[in-house]
Structures are given as C-alpha cells and as structure tokens.
Amino acid sequence: MLTVPIRQLGDSERSTVERILDRDPYAGAQIAERVAAHGLSWWRADGRIYGYGPGRDVESLCWSGAHLVPVCVSPPAVAAFAELLGAEPRACSSIIGRADAVLGLWDRLAAHWGQARDVRPNQPLLVAAAAPPAPADPEVRLVRPDEVDALFPAAVAMYTEEVGVSPLLDDGGRGYRRRIAELARSGRAYARFVGGRVIFKAELAIVTRRTAQVQGVWVDPEFRGRGLAVPAVAAVVRDALRRVAPTVSLYVNDYNFPARRVYARCGFQPAGTFATVLF
C-alpha cells in the first residue's frame, strides 16, 4: 500500500492543474496543450495525471501516458511517483522533463522497468522571447497540406537520425504521417523547398498560450555547412513569435554543438536543463 500523499486528479481540479503548469510553462507544455484542448477528461482516454501534496493540496504533477512527464516535482514527489509507477508495467515510450526530476525517476524505476534504449541526461532548455538578431530566410515558409508527400521523407529522416529508430517500424509510419499531416493542416510545419525537395524543416510540435515548442529541426545532409540553418531557424522563430505564442522554446542534446551555435545566433537563452529517457 502506498504511504505517500499522491492521487489521480479529475475534471474538478483543472484549475489546480493549470496553476501548477503555469509555474513551469516549458516542462509542462505538453500537458498544458492537451488540457487546454480537452480538459482533464482527456486523461481517461490517453493517460492519467497524478498530483502530489498533503491533504487536498497539490504541489507536483506527473502525467503517465504515451510519455511520462513530471512537472514541478520535488525530491519527495519523485520518490512518491516512482513508488506508484514502479508497481505497474511500463506503458510509456519515454520520460521527458526537467533533468533532476527525470533522472530521479529513472534512478528509482530502472530496476522495475528494465534497460532503457537511450538516456540523454543533459539537454539544454532554450527560450527566445524576442525577434532573432539574425536575418530570416525568406524561402522558409509554412508547409501546405497538399505538400505532406514532399515533407514526409524529410520528417522520417530527421526522426531516424535524432531518435535512433525509424518511425516506420510500428505501423508502417501511418501514425507518424497523420501527425505530420496534422501539423501542416494547423499551420505548424515549416520547410524550405528546392525543386520540390525539402532541404530544411521544423515544426511547432507543442503550442500553448505561454510557448511554442520547436522540434524536428533538420537540414538535408547535402546542404549542411552552407550557412542555411541560422536564417532558416530565425524565420521559424520570427513567425512563431508574431503569430503563435509569446515565447519559442526547445531542448537540444548537449553534444550537438552545431545546433547549439545556431540557436544562440537566433537569440535563444538558457532556461535550465531537460533530460530524456527513451525506451
């Protein structure tokens, strides 16, 4: 039996959940996007959200679904969530969030869930709140829905390079293609085309009232080293700040020095450290 103050949260506690998510709008962005769209009833279909705190008070959150996402989690909350989650088989494909929370959870869950495919312990979290100092590439634009066929191979190449496995393995890529198509339909996919070929791409994978989180930044290997990335990313940031959210955020592997230099030249500032555990 659990001996810790932890419980699953429901619809009546939406305001409490939103208050905690506002305390860390970057680590909580994935959850905040879903809550804004669907309320807490969404959890019943796609996952569960747990709160930690004494009595009826809630001070920390953890979403358990396709991903495991801790938000505003103290060391006692890490221990509590790990005690709860370690009693069940692993259902998530990754643990994502602030490094201290993610690595603390993994330290306690590894014995129950088995070996991870990859652990990325140091991923700088970067935030831009002003237009980039670098000039924007005028050729980078939103992808039209009828251009998904051209975008999809580039998205697969990026995913495979970044994550280490192909998104085509599970269902032939149907689910991943639906995701890419939805990003294009919602005005959240960017690309630069040369002769119908995508040579740069990026997406606003998560959008909340506080931030737009950029993911999937990729330059075709043939075009790397030509100075394309800085103006291309600057174009994405400039448009997202103008049209979507008051900040743009992302996290990057610490060893990816070329990408980190690009983001610095586009005005991104450090805002902490993320970690990711991949299964």
Rank of each mutant, 00 (worst) to 15 (best):
M1F: 08
M1D: 09
L9T: 06
S12N: 10
V17L: 04
V17S: 02
E18A: 10
R19C: 01
R19I: 00
D22I: 02
R23W: 07
R23Y: 03
A27F: 05
Q30L: 11
E33K: 07
E33S: 11
A37P: 02
H38L: 05
H38D: 13
G39I: 09
S41R: 10
R48L: 14
R48T: 13
Y50V: 12
Y50M: 03
G51E: 08
P54V: 12
P54R: 06
P54H: 12
G55A: 11
E59G: 04
H67S: 13
L68D: 06
V69E: 12
P70D: 12
P75C: 03
A79P: 04
E83F: 02
L84Y: 07
G86V: 02
G86P: 02
A87Q: 14
A87M: 09
P89F: 00
R90P: 05
C92L: 01
C92S: 14
A101R: 02
R108N: 12
A110D: 09
A110M: 05
A110T: 13
A111V: 09
W113R: 06
A116N: 03
R117K: 15
N122W: 13
L126N: 00
V127M: 03
A131N: 04
P132Q: 01
P133F: 00
P135G: 08
A136F: 07
D137A: 06
V140D: 08
V143E: 03
P145D: 11
P145N: 09
D146N: 13
E147D: 03
P153K: 00
A154C: 07
A154W: 04
A155C: 14
Y159F: 15
Y159H: 15
E161K: 08
E161M: 05
V163L: 14
V165D: 11
V165T: 13
S166I: 08
P167N: 11
L168I: 06
D170I: 13
G172P: 04
R178A: 15
R178I: 01
A184P: 10
R185M: 08
G187C: 01
F193S: 01
V198H: 02
I199T: 09
A202E: 01
L204H: 14
A205Q: 13
T208R: 03
R209Q: 07
T211C: 10
Q213V: 10
V217W: 05
D220L: 13
E222R: 14
E222Q: 11
G227P: 07
G227C: 09
L228K: 03
V233R: 09
V236R: 07
R238E: 15
D239F: 11
R242W: 02
R243Q: 14
R243V: 12
P246W: 10
V248A: 15
Y251D: 12
V252F: 02
V252P: 07
N256M: 03
F257E: 14
F257R: 12
A259M: 00
R261T: 06
Y263F: 04
A264Y: 01
C266Q: 11
C266Y: 02
A271N: 13
G272K: 08
T273L: 11
T276E: 15
L278G: 04
